[in-house]
Amino acid sequence: MSEEHNELTEPATAESFENPGLGHHRPRLGDDDPRAAKRSERQVVALFTVSILATIGGIVGYFAFPVAEPDAGNVRMSTLVLGLGLGLGMLGIGAAAVHWAKSLMNDHEKVEERHEQRGDDATRERAVEMLQEGAADSGIARRPVLKGALGTALALAPLSFVVPLVGNLGADWNVSKFRHTAWAGTPDGGPRYLATDPTDRRIKASDITRGSMVHVMPYRLPEEEHYLEEKAKAVVIVIRVDPSILKEPEERRGWSYDGIVAYSKVCTHVGCPVALYEQQTHHVLCPCHQSTFDITDQAKVVFGPAKRPLPQLPIAVDDEGYLYAQQDFDEPVGPSYWERER
């Protein structure tokens, strides 16, 4: 049996090598020289002493730097001293144990043969016998209802964690929500004004001087339900440039106001906030993957992995000079998804 096993697992060339056996045992300094052994012992003791001192130091530090006072320096010292005490305390014990074993305990090479993994035939037959006995004793073959009940119970039991797991993946499968943002209008049907983020102050067109940039969210959105979800879709950057350098197609001519343009702040690549505005080049960069959009030319992509321009928010000015959104974005903001074009 064992011969057959060897033939199967060992490569054919195994016979061409002779087992080199163990090398010549080389004694360590400490094996012959008691002074060297004594020195190793002292080193082990020193390592244990490091551990002891570090632990004591950590405890002393805990009382010396109380974290009760609101002092950042104290917190840092307390953490540092406790961490060093714990770390060196453990490291000292570990290093001492390793050094002890390496230098003082015996280092004679020992060979332990790996035992055969396969059980012998008698054991295997007995095992199969026991299984069959158990099956016969349970009477599962004779009692089909019992068999069915057991199978059903086993099949259903995992559902109590599988169903919530799958269900929680997405409680809301309404993808059309991506098409609408809070800019469509206020809950009572009025137009949505532009407000500063995070201070929620309405913005006048005259507030935005040339070269400036404002981070904008819909006015009074924080008072509404699910405000963070809505804000995540509706964040906008507003920038004013010289109107003569704006390249606007005919159908978008009314979307800006005297050089003030508003674009979605959500990158069309994977949705990072695109907000690094270079005032002199009129480029907006995404901090995640360096997609670059030209604000003067409909926020078209000039560099990077983004594939689509940033959606533009059509803005207008009311009688008092405040900026508001004429309508919602005309396309979903943010990265692409399967149903986007449908």
């Binding site: 507030d207 940039m213 920038i239 080049t281």
Partner: peptide, 10 residues
């Protein structure tokens, strides 16, 4: 230079 203006209104 590259930095946008944050005037006293915004």
């Amino acid at each position: 230079q590259s930095m946008p203006v944050f005037n006293d209104a915004t």
